[in-house]
């Protein structure tokens, strides 16, 4: 089973690389954004899906990552790839610091606090004292990276492949983290905090660390997003960014690694389709689909795909486990 899964992942990755040479321009940019959002949603998934701490404010970490990259590139002439580790560290630190007070609180209060963070964020970014760095309302324009070493790739192709490579590494690391001892502890905290504590899990420490890792992922996604869009400004990080990530999480599949990819594809492509109807339609479509998924397909696209696969390949019957965040099969994703 592990072999087939590995094979499927390699095949998927090969396809993703091959696409770079089949598409160009805007379509490649969209795919770059899919990978970027997939990393961001994966980050959100670590804290909300696996750890059960609802965050409605992950747009904040996305924004911090984007701004770190933009500031380093425009003010300090740091090459774009070198900004990623810096932004990862800074976002992890922010995540840890924000999680410290917030995670002592139960699910709803954290949702509330992070929602408040998301709403207040553009105002914080516009703060005049930070203007020499952030460029205030104007934002920062950054230049597009070129393919290195005389590779015969267009800028779009190189950016897509670069983002894909970063994404692949980060997905691998996350899968590794979540399937090991720490991943089990993270899930145990969600499913039964008291039992987890009795087993020797330090709840507060684990929750804050999960929050930090989650912020790191979303922050790196923000950096990649800034490089792809070549522009950051306070108003691109409104509360709707956080909500969009949340929608992607639920629609893709809560507590599922592959779900992050489905969710990202959803939030990149569906608004494009919906906006052909009306500018306002994207939000309404998001809202209706979000509610629809929560009622009818709480396990998201990933859960749906898994069920279809299971129907095609007969296996031992799935056991449904009811947890804090929803119904999942066999107790794992």
């Amino acid at each position: 089973m592990a072999g087939t899964r590995m094979l499927a992942i390699m095949a998927g990755l090969a396809c993703a690389v091959a696409i770079a040479f089949a598409l160009s321009g805007y379509h490649l940019f969209q795919l770059t954004m899919v990978v970027t959002y997939a990393i961001a949603i994966l980050g959100l998934n670590i804290v909300t899906g696996y750890n059960g701490q609802i965050s409605l404010g992950h747009g904040a970490f996305y924004a911090i990552g984007a701004y770190v990259t933009a500031i380093l590139m425009s003010n300090y002439d740091v090459p774009y790839w070198a900004t990623l580790p810096v932004s990862a560290l800074i976002c992890a630190a922010f995540g840890f610091a924000f999680g410290l007070p917030a995670l002592r609180l139960g699910g709803l209060y954290l949702a509330l606090t992070t929602f408040a963070l998301a709403v207040a964020l553009p105002q914080l970014l516009k703060y005049p004292a930070l203007e020499p760095w952030t460029g205030g309302v104007q934002g920062i324009v950054i230049s597009k990276p070129e393919a290195p070493l005389g590779l015969r790739l267009s800028g779009d192709q190189w950016l897509y492949l670069f983002t894909l490579a970063v994404g692949a590494v980060m997905f691998l690391l996350a899968a590794n983290l979540l399937s090991g001892r720490i991943g089990r502890a993270i899930r145990a905290v969600r499913d039964n905090p008291i039992a987890a504590e009795a087993m020797g899990v330090d709840l507060a420490l684990l929750k804050t660390r999960a929050f930090a890792v989650s912020a790191l992922y979303t922050g790196v996604a923000g950096s990649l997003g800034a490089i792809a869009v070549q522009f950051v400004a306070p108003d691109s990080f409104s509360v709707f960014l956080s909500i969009t990530l949340f929608v992607g999480l639920v629609v893709g599949g809560v507590a599922s690694i592959s779900g992050a990819i489905f969710g990202a594809a959803f939030i990149v492509f569906v608004p494009n389709l919906a906006e052909q109807v009306s500018k306002a339609a994207a939000g309404a479509v998001y809202g209706v689909i979000l509610i629809g998924f929560l009622y009818f397909i709480p396990s998201g696209f990933a859960g749906m795909a898994r069920r279809i696969l299971q129907r095609m390949i007969p296996q031992r019957p799935a056991m449904l486990v009811r947890t804090e965040v929803g119904v999942r099969e066999n107790g794992h994703a």
């Binding site: 909300t48 059960g52 609802i54 409605l56 699910g107 709803l108 949702a111 909500i243 949340f246 929608v247 639920v250 809560v254 306002a280 339609a281 994207a282 939000g283 309404a284 998001y286 809202g287 209706v288 979000l290 509610i291 929560l294 709480p298 947890t323 804090e324 965040v325 929803g326």
Partner: peptide, 20 residues
């Protein structure tokens, strides 16, 4: 329903009302 679902429905409502 679990907290995540109810929060999600409220967020969905927010989106629907805002865009309507």
């Amino acid at each position: 329903a679990p907290v995540l679902s109810s929060v999600g429905v409220f967020i969905g409502l927010l989106l629907v009302f805002n865009s309507i």
